[in-house]
Design a protein around this nucleic acid. Sequence first.
DNA 1: AACTATATATAAGA
DNA 2: TCTTATATATAGTT
Lengths: 120, 120
Amino acid sequence: MARGKVQMKRIENPVHRQVTFSKRRAGLLKKAKELSVLCDAEIGLFIFSAHGKLYELATKGSMQGLIERYLKSTKGVGVAEVAKDTQALDPKEEINMLKNEIDVLQKGLRYIFIISDLSN
Amino acid sequence: MARGKVQMKRIENPVHRQVTFSKRRAGLLKKAKELSVLCDAEIGLFIFSAHGKLYELATKGSMQGLIERYLKSTKGVGVAEVAKDTQALDPKEEINMLKNEIDVLQKGLRYIFIISDLSN
DNA sequence: AACTATATATAAGA
DNA sequence: TCTTATATATAGTT
């Protein structure tokens, strides 16, 4: 977008591709933050580079919190918070809870998320 | 960024805020797609409007797939595929599996993801 | 929702 | 990297 238009396909030259990735990644993260602030939106963004390195942004709280919200929003139930701290529970109670979650699963829901501690 | 700079804070006028949200949301999604194509990156992006409406983009496969990859990448284990189809399992076996997953949890891992069917 | 004038992002070059 | 010419995004306006 500067000294020439760019074709919308994979940049073949690895050096150019890496440079463009760095610049545009920074631009994308900046735009996401701006949208969040200006319009009071919550945004989760994660980027895996071609070699698997992760870059991420969660505008409110944690990415885990946003993922939960996302799954809830898309799957109806999806995210079931079973226990804040499983280590504080009697194992039998936990198994019973898990059985209940299995029942939920068998009713056709696709995801159960067991979260031991959301706060850190 | 056009007929005047914008302050980086919440836009108070609801009409302006909504218009800006629509425009910038479209811009952000476009930029994310471009980065993905040009640089061969995988991107997961979700946006919740102030009133909870979800807008999303997953550049390869599904958002669920990207979320799994995200959790794996950040939590080491994070995502444990327990069964492709829980309905095909004997309940006792399933409880044993869940006990094993509890053991994993009690070793300090934070997330277990029970996925009944990844394929649809 | 369409139109510009401007601000910003960024491709190519150094 | 840093610079700079240009493409793109978008704020204010209609």
